[in-house]
């Protein structure tokens, strides 16, 4: 049987991304202009990579959590906490330009993130609370913690080494892109080159059976939530260092929803089990491209959200096999396959 490229889970997300780029090509050709300036590349596509990298990193962590049939709503708050923690430490330091201080601040921020991820993991795996509720606690409380850290102020830092994380350049590309690539490759390697990926899928597919098969689901759940929090922490560092300031109130606001959207667009099922990291990456790029496209085309802010919702709806519909079949048949849509599965799961 020949390779069915249309059956690849990456086909539809990539098609949607291509469609979006095509619209830009037709309406705003300067979208694709990239020039070389001050020793680095400069253009809309580069901006998409730069501003999209926090979302991509958070979404990679989210993918693994969702694959275990969980969800992590607290990532937005963790983004704020991590940025606030780093900026506070740096602003208290004697010499903001000192590399040691920045490294210390970064490590502290990431350690706090991982500790909070452990808290999420303990609530989910230890206390057996539903993931959506367990992480909701930190989603709400985390904003408060971030505001406590910043005492409600926006902390501005002048540290050059810190600014490099989110706005620096390495080999003509934004440094944050390398961070995103590193996180992605690490997650891909861990899940595809070791048996961890299979364990995660097993827990997502059938927790009871995987436990009976001898998988230590608790430790794996803990590790997954900690990794997701670490991703959020890294994203928080990028977000805050990009503007050299920590904003406890707005940093990472609603990024959890964008991340979940990126995961879903990428073809990972919210019901757990199979997941696709590459799909998530495409999903995150799609969301950021959409945002940038809206700015470039000059869509009035009043209807921005409607335009976004419409595109997301279209992308989700086109990925639904039963919707495509209904369109292809042009007749009365048959009873969707998905709903039947839903019923059996409840039964």
């Amino acid at each position: 049987m020949p390779f069915r490229w249309r059956n690849s889970h990456l086909f539809w997300p990539l098609a949607a991304l291509g469609g979006l780029l095509l619209i830009n090509l037709l309406l705003k050709p300067e979208f694709f202009a990239i020039r070389y300036q001050n020793g680095h590349l400069y253009g809309s596509l580069i901006d998409i990579l730069n501003f999209g990298s926090p979302l991509a990193i958070v979404a990679v962590g989210m993918t693994l959590v969702i694959a275990t049939r969980g969800i992590d709503l607290s990532v937005g708050s963790l983004v704020a906490i991590s940025g606030a923690m780093a900026c506070l430490t740096i602003s208290r330091g004697a010499d903001q330009q000192s590399l040691h201080l920045v490294l210390g601040a970064v490590l502290l921020a990431l350690a706090v993130s991982v500790a909070l991820g452990l808290w999420n993991g303990l609530l989910v795996a230890g206390a057996g609370i539903q993931p959506i509720i367990a992480t909701l606690i930190l989603m709400v409380a985390g904003r408060g913690i971030a505001q406590l850290i910043t005492s409600g102020q926006i902390i501005t830092v002048t540290s050059k080494p810190y600014h490099f994380i989110g706005a620096g350049w390495l080999f003509t590309l934004p440094f944050s892109v390398y961070l995103a690539a590193l996180v992605f490759l690490f997650a891909a390697w861990m899940t595809r080159r070791t048996s961890l990926g299979m364990f995660i899928e097993a827990i997502g597919c059938n927790p009871a059976a995987s436990r009976l098969a001898g998988i230590r689901s608790r430790s794996i759940l803990l590790a997954v939530y900690m990794f997701c929090a670490l991703c959020a922490g890294i994203a928080g560092l990028i977000t805050s260092s990009n503007v050299s300031s920590a904003d406890g109130n707005n940093a990472g606001l609603w990024i959890e929803l964008d991340a979940i959207l990126a995961v879903v667009i990428g073809g990972t099922s919210l019901a757990g089990g199979r997941f696709s990291l590459a799909g998530t990456l495409v999903g995150a790029l799609l969301i950021q491209t959409l945002t940038t496209t809206i700015y470039m085309l000059g869509v009035p802010p009043e209807i921005t959200l409607v335009v976004k919702a419409f595109v997301v709806l279209a992308v989700c519909l086109i990925q639904s096999p039963s919707f495509r079949r209904a369109i292809a048949a042009r007749g009365v849509p048959r009873k969707p396959v998905a709903s039947r599965q839903e019923v059996s799961r409840h039964g």
């Binding site: 705003k28 901006d47 990009n242 940093a251 700015y295």
Partner: peptide, 14 residues
């Protein structure tokens, strides 16, 4: 600040 930077960057491209 974050949104201001992101939007301005797009303005400068467009």
């Amino acid at each position: 600040r974050a949104k201001g930077k992101e939007v301005m960057q797009s303005f400068l491209q467009a």
